[in-house]
């Protein structure tokens, strides 16, 4: 390692922190605008042109609010939960290959590292729900665990399928294996697995569930549980959870782009670069928002049945199918 390495890492960290903050702020704006459009209304319009300064006003409001720890709550864990939520999300960003050279740490086990960091997410939400000593919080904590345990399994099976096709755990190498035009992407790797698009759909559903997005937002089902695990959080305590939620959405979408959509490679084979990564990333984010405002929330039993009775058998089948295809071809 040279002396330039710490400077590069520091700059990357500053960049990631800025990216996460801006993303969280402006994805909320996009979400509200999108929700407005899907429901035939305008969304935020008042603060700034087309409501563009609304996130800054929201941030100011959240930061100026008092942080309240409810009496009877477990004070230490109540404060610890938002702190446990944010750093793993930021650390995960350091692993994402935005382009060939724009990557914080190119680990040879990058994919596993990404899942390791995202496993903090569940325990943080669960601690938040449990420690606030609130019935909605505890119901939400129980839900988030059973939901995440159920959806981790098809997610991992899908990941193993993709791994067998690409043959590496390094995110950069996975993207490199999909160079060229769009028919080289893993999404269309039909030679090694004819059901690859199905695999992608399973991945997308699991990603929605892991990031607690509607129609699977059982953890903060606002019409049933007020705000679930976040009910008792005021001010920036809630703000951190909100930021981490959007950071996790971006990570999930980036993972979809890396695993299935060819990362920084262009769909027509010319001008690869970070531009294409961001275009694909925000297309996926738009899909997530679109799904949220189009589908109603599922029932909890429906959610678990979907995972255990439909997604897991299909993903095991695709895994076996790709094993057979790779062996034969």
């Amino acid at each position: 390692m040279t002396a330039a390495e710490p400077i590069r890492l520091l700059l990357f960290l500053v960049g990631v922190a800025t990216f996460v903050g801006l993303n969280a702020a402006y994805l909320v704006w996009v979400e509200r605008k999108g929700a407005g459009r899907f429901q035939r209304r305008a969304g935020p319009t008042e603060v700034g042109y087309a409501g563009l300064l609304q996130p800054i006003a929201d941030a100011g409001k959240l930061m100026s609010k008092q942080l309240i720890v409810p009496p009877g709550a477990d004070r230490v864990l109540f404060r610890l939960a938002p702190i446990m939520m944010m750093p793993p999300a930021i650390m995960a960003f350091a692993l994402l290959p935005f382009s060939e050279s724009l990557v914080g740490i190119d680990m040879n086990v990058g994919l596993i590292a990404l899942f390791a960091f995202s496993s903090f997410n569940v325990i943080a939400v669960m601690l938040a729900g449990w420690s606030s000593r609130n019935k909605y919080g505890i119901i939400s904590a129980a839900r988030v665990v059973s939901q995440n345990v159920a959806y981790e399994i098809p997610m991992m099976l899908v990941i193993i399928t993709v791994l067998m096709v690409s043959g590496t755990l390094s995110l950069t190498a996975i993207v490199d294996g999909q160079s060229g035009a769009f028919w080289n992407w893993n999404l269309f790797a039909l030679a090694s697995n004819p059901l690859m698009p199905v695999t992608f759909i399973i991945f997308f559903i699991c990603m929605l569930s892991e990031t607690n997005r509607a129609p699977f937002d059982m953890a903060e089902a606002e019409s049933e549980l007020v705000a679930g695990a976040y009910t008792e959080y005021a001010g920036m305590g809630f703000g951190v959870f909100f930021m981490a939620e959007y950071a996790n959405i971006v990570i999930g979408c980036a993972l979809a782009v890396v695993l299935f959509l060819g990362g920084w490679h262009s769909p027509v084979g010319v001008f690869p670069g970070v531009f294409w990564f961001l275009v694909k990333l925000y297309f996926m984010v738009f899909l997530v928002i679109w799904v949220r405002w189009t589908f109603p929330r599922t029932q909890f039993y429906g959610l678990l049945n979907l995972s255990w009775k439909i997604l897991i058998p299909i993903s095991i089948f695709t895994l076996l199918l790709s094993a057979v295809m790779i062996k034969l071809v």
């Binding site: 040879n108 086990v109 899942f115 390791a116 496993s119 325990i123 669960m126 449990w130 665990v145």
Partner: peptide, 25 residues
């Protein structure tokens, strides 16, 4: 690094969460 990541994935992502789930029930 592989062992480190598996340690986090298994112990935090699976063992701790299972224990807390049992406690909550």
């Amino acid at each position: 690094p592989f062992l480190a990541m598996i340690q986090i994935l298994i112990y935090i992502g699976a063992v701790c969460i299972t224990i807390v789930f049992a406690i909550m029930l």
